[in-house]
Design a protein around this nucleic acid. Structure first.
Lengths: 182, 182, 182, 182
DNA sequence: AATGAATGAGTATTCATTCAT
DNA sequence: CATGAATGAATACTCATTCAT
């Protein structure tokens, strides 16, 4: 009878909403995997379902942006002089998110967004691989592609493990491949 | 209220049906993951939903048996003198199934069935690890637990990869860990 | 491949099976109501589903016979000189079964089996009502039909009560209607 | 995956929908009992399954509200000077609903909602019992608890009777307990 | 442009009924 | 004639997507 819009903060909040959705998506995808219910993301972001769909028409479009956000954080670290060990440490700390990220890239081979994400990651590795080999973070023979494979293994392995076992698994995983994070 | 069955091959087909369900489950779990719709399994096995539930009241009970079946095949190979390299090759060939298998074990830490599966796998590794080290399949320092970790990484990595990329990923994965399959 | 019939005691067990089904049905209907799953009855009777259906093609046909069995027990008591109070006491003791019984009769007004059951109950009441009035079990003005109504109320009331409250409800119910069981 | 909604009257209809669900639930529970299929309620209310679940996550939450609605109507009558006879007349007129209501309360002994409903009913009886005794609606010795028992018997009895027999059964039931509705 | 209610397809599970052995 | 496996309809519940406000 009297449909009082609860809290409609108007268009000014648009950018704010978008950021909240991206942040929430990153968290929820990391916790529940890429197939998490979208309303969980909307709820955590504190926005309506409609806003989520307006900003991100498909699940993937949201996932791409959410992970691009993650990647940007790593790129920033590298830009400030971060090492390969720093990069891999960040990957380790977000092993669950990394697994979802890798899965996303791997499963959309043709998609330009996926390729862009893949290229960003490759760029990060390329920029640090030499230093990594020099400092002994990775064995001498390691290529950039090998680092990607290593990340895929560790992230994928972590994604099928229980949360409480992840840290140990990740640590030993790097070791088995001759990777030393410091 | 008015069920109109199409075909009923009778109880004689019971064992056949059960085997078909186990086989179908192995395939579907490998293709779609542990959360695949159960009716996909029933349909592929060519049985009704009821038969699936009669044989396996829970999703996990089905998964356990499906993977126990897989493991038994590996155990048999070991019993006939198979090497660690043979074991890891079989794991590689069923990388997707292995990922679901590892996930199943990892996600049911207390469950006796899961622990039994884990124990079976551990037994297989234990029985072949010495030979594996001697023959250079794994590096000298590798423990049985390390082999399990390696499997977990490879299987998990494969699970987030596209089917067409799996083989290359798995092959390079073993190599990065110093494992040589032959 | 080798369908070994488990325990097929042959046709000799037919009567035995039928009796077991009737007994089980009485118990299950009393415990779970008239809509109880039929396989619960078959299981409790220790027979296959097929035997149940062979003997009783419909749920009602089974219910009719199961309750006729109950009624026969009461009739026997009356035949041996039982009083109205005895009858009502038996009804009280099986309040849950009585509710299912009353429901069965009430909901199949045209059915000859139901009418026969109703007639049996009426006969029992007719045979004892005079004595019941004389001895003060029921008030002077009570007709046989009134007793039926009273039973219907008590049984129906019990059927919607929790098991632990039934006894008190039934006792007070009789009292409110001026019925004294001793 | 491809939901094709037919009509969507929008959020403005929300209150209307909720009311329709409550009304439909009251009717369906009265007709088919507390275990009626929920989609029957959704269909009668003219809403989708989802709307039903959004408003009432569990069957009981729906039942509680539906019956609270019923009770509120009675409370209102009492507040306007209604007598015990009026109350019992309303119970009689909704005998089937009353049976479901009593069943709901009886079967959830610990539940606060159930206890609140029970308390509401008790309050109604308490508020009218004195007048009821004074005017001869109930016998002099009747307590409030006795009235509850009487309601339970009548409602329970009605619940196992055919619709066409209910009125007569209810009327005679009150009479047998010395209750006169006017 | 934001909200969140509405919709209904998809999936899980149960159980009445049939039928090969 | 007994058995119990097989079948699939019915029902419960979830969640992606749309749309009136």
């Amino acid at each position: 009878m009297s449909p009082t819009p609860r809290t409609n903060r108007g268009p000014a909040a648009a950018a704010e909403n978008r950021a909240a959705i991206i942040k929430a998506a990153g968290e929820v995808f990391a916790e529940q995997g890429l197939n998490a219910p979208l309303n969980a993301i909307a709820k955590r972001a504190g926005v309506g379902q409609g806003s989520l769909y307006r900003n991100f028409p498909t699940r993937q479009s949201l996932a791409f942006v959410a992970f691009a956000d993650n990647l940007a954080a790593i790129e920033e670290v590298v830009a400030r002089g971060g090492t390969l060990a720093d990069v891999l440490t960040m990957v380790s700390e977000q092993a669950a998110a990394s697994a979802a990220f890798i899965e996303l890239i791997a499963q959309h081979p043709g998609d330009p967004h996926a390729e862009q994400l893949g290229a960003s990651l490759a760029g990060i590795i390329d920029a640090t691989i030499e230093e990594g080999r020099a400092s002994g973070t990775v064995p001498a023979g390691f290529t950039a592609a090998d680092v990607i494979v290593a990340i895929q293994l560790v992230a994928g392995g972590a994604s099928v493990a229980l949360a409480r076992d992840r840290e140990a698994l990740v640590r030993r995983g790097w070791e088995l491949m001759g990777i030393r994070l410091g």
